[in-house]
Each structure stands twice: as C-alpha cells, then as structure tokens.
Nucleic acid binder design. Structure first.
Lengths: 225, 225
DNA sequence: ACCTGAACACCGTTCAAGT
DNA sequence: ACCTGAACACCGTTCAAGT
C-alpha cells in the first residue's frame, strides 16, 4: 500500500491487469477465447511474460472468477433477516453468472478455492444466524452451495452450447424442447409433458423457487428440534 | 437386431466398442487421458477412423456418460414409496460418480442431453407420484436435478484436482482444510470453524442429508396447499 | 526482476488416399 | 462403406536469451 504506490508506467504488467484483461476476453469470447496467445496480444507482451505473474491457466481462471464473485457479494444488502440475506446472495450470484457465464464453469472447477469459499462463508454465517444447530451447519451449507453451483454449471453449459452452435439461448432451448418432445412416449412421459413449457420458463424464477424449497427444509429442521 | 446380427469380425470398429474403450480409458486415466490418439491406439486403428462412428469429442464423452447413467438407473429398486425411489436413484447416481468421477464433469457439460434427461425423467415420475401439483413439478424436479448435478460436479472436480496433484482424495482434502484454517479470522469465521471437520466428513452422508432437506421442502409444499 | 518469443509436446479434426 | 495416417491449426508451458 505505501511503497510502490501506483505503477508509474501505465503499461507495466501486473497480476491485476492480466486478470482484468482475462475478464474482458472471457466476457467477449467465452472460455474457449481465453488463450495465453490472445491474452498476450491484448496486453502487447509475450505469452511467456504472463507466467511471471500467474501460475497456470487454472490459476488465471479461478482468479478472474474470484474477482467477479468478490465484487458480487460485496454489493449485497446486509441488514435483513438471515433467510433474506441468503436469498439475496444467491440471487446476486445467479445474476452474476447470467452476465458472465464462464464463472459457472470456473466455480465448478475450483473446489475449496477462494471464490467458492467466499460464497460458503456468506451462507455459513447466515445459516448460523437462522438458528441451525452447530453440528448441522456444515451439511446445510453444503446443500445450499451444491444447489447454487449446480445451477451455475448448467447455466454456464447452456451459454457455452449456444455459443458453440452460434445460436442464442432461446433458439438453443427451442432445439432442446423439440428433441425432448420427440422422445419415446412410454419411456419419457414426464420429459415430453414438460418439453413444451421449456421455452417460456424463467430460469431465475425456477432458481428462486428451488432455493425456497431448501430454505423451507432448513427452517423446518431448525425449528423441528 | 435381425440383420447383421453379431459382428463376425471380433475387431470390427463399432460405436459401442469405441464407447466401451473410452470408458476404460476415462476410468483409468481420467478425463485428460481420453484423447483420440490414445483411443485409436487402444483400438488398434487410426485416429480418423473414430470419426466415422462418433461426431466429436463432446459426443464421445456424453455417450460414455450415458452408458453409465443408463446402467446405473436401470439397477435401482422399483417398488418403494416415491420419496424412497428418488433417494435410491440419487444415491446410486452418487455412487456411480464416486466410481467414475468423470461422469460428474460430463453431466455438467451436457445440458438437456440424454444422460441428464434420464435422471430428470426418473425424478419427474416420482415427483408426480409424490403428489406435487402439475404446475410445480418442473421447478421441483429442476431443484433436485441442480442439487444432484452440483454435488456431481464438485466430486468430479475434487477427483480431478487430486489426480492432477498426484495425491489421493484424503490428502487433497487435508490440504484444503489447512488452507481454510489459515484464512483471516475476522472475514472467514465459519470456514475456519468448519475446516477441522472437513477431513472426517462423509460426503455421501452429507449428500443424503441435503437431499432430505429438499425432500422435506417438497413434502411440505405438496401437503401445504 | 521482468520480459521476449521461439520451441516443445501435445491437442481435436480433416481429408486425400487406400481397401 | 469403412479405414488409414499424415497434415492442419491450434493449445499450455518452458526456457535460453535479452534488458
């Protein structure tokens, strides 16, 4: 903080600048667009220079993800009920993944790493505040976290799939809906029944409803004994 | 079925043989071990020959995953309560992912594809049997599916991480636990408190508890109105 | 200490050529 | 119809050489 205050040279290579450039590339071209060559070109440097500041590609992706997660959780309302705080944090994560789909994939590749821990910590503090007994807090938080990461991963995969095929999200969902409606009627009655509605479903609302289901279960267990 | 009954030539290349070989490689060397070159060598053929039977690597991975998922769901007990049937299906999926960690990753890369649909269909039929009203079935199934896929993905990532570092699962978890216990005490009280217990936690039991939480929420909602 | 960029050891995929 | 295997267009990562 004190010494080496601001980088005098505007173009000096720092870990922060590398991560910011990575986020730009990831937002613009998706996960497959982030290569060391593309990154080096954007930063007007050599590919090898990046390794002076970054361990490897996994480190780069996790750090970029962590920047977004930290930013996202920071801007979440603090003084509400624990349950509302969990919901607010989860929904703001959903929105962040909607805006940066690659995060969903990055989170699922970084078990126990900082970005996941940030989410876990937020959940854990609020689960404790909800009155969940101490010996049940871990599994409760795990359940919430798994649910959030599961939705994240699927959203990321949907975005990735759509991008790869060069179609937008809704046309991709329409293709899936068509495929589902053509499945065998005896073996897949539920999937066929649900296929038609797939197009007009609101993912964010579905996420919220599922969250409510889990929170109800937690509340019941916390009050139950 | 009728014509071309059994491949006369023991070594003729078929889609099925390719997928079986892929499963062997994935089980033995993980996702990064599955390359077209390694596969071609194992099948004593050229790399390009595989493309005559398989669209691309994604298709290959999804198909290999689907083989395991189909096998897994097939061997699940049929005549129990809907709730028990959901639990049995989910736990057998957990065990399958434990045995073949790459499935967790494959499932999360194949949204709306056959292996995921198989799980969804199973869940959907039992959710309907639980008495969940029709207009709530989709979001209910989505919640269960997201939870299962979330746990899958994390298990797969844990296995992948461990393999990459050349350590087994428990030493990897021990490393994570150490890192967690060294986090800032003010910012990460929950994570630090939980770090010590990470080593001896039973993932399968945690998964079961979380599942119960969601199923309780579903039961309450189904009876509630 | 920090950066350069060629080189290494791989990938998935294609495609002319074979049978 | 099915297979071969060289070739193409990439990757992440390393490392001698520069400043």
């Amino acid at each position: 903080m004190v010494k080496n205050s601001n980088s005098r040279r505007e173009d000096s290579l720092t870990r922060e600048r590398i991560i910011d450039a990575s986020i730009d590339i990831l937002d613009g071209s998706g996960e497959s667009g982030l290569t060391f060559r593309a990154l080096a070109q954007r930063l007007a440097t050599g590919a090898g220079a990046i390794y002076y500041h970054i361990d490897n590609k996994g480190d780069l992706l996790t750090s970029a993800c962590d920047t977004i997660v930290a930013r996202t959780l920071q801007t979440t309302a603090p003084d509400t009920t624990p349950r509302d705080a969990i919901r607010a944090a989860a929904l703001s994560m959903f929105d962040a993944i909607d805006a940066h789909p690659w995060i969903g994939s990055a989170l699922n590749q970084a078990p126990g790493q900082l970005p996941v821990v940030r989410i876990m910590e937020r959940l854990g503090q609020q689960v404790a505040a909800m009155g969940v007994p101490e010996d049940a807090q871990w599994s409760t938080v795990s359940a919430l976290l798994s649910y959030i990461l599961g939705v994240s991963g699927q959203n990321a995969a949907n975005a990735h799939y759509g991008r790869a095929r060069g179609v937008d999200r809704s046309t991709f969902l329409a293709q899936v809906a068509t495929a589902w409606s053509e499945l065998d009627a005896d073996a897949y009655p539920f999937t066929r029944r649900v296929a038609a509605g797939l197009r007009e479903h609101d993912d964010r609302r579905d996420f919220d409803v599922g969250l409510d289901l889990i929170l109800n279960g937690i509340d019941a267990a916390a009050r139950g004994r």
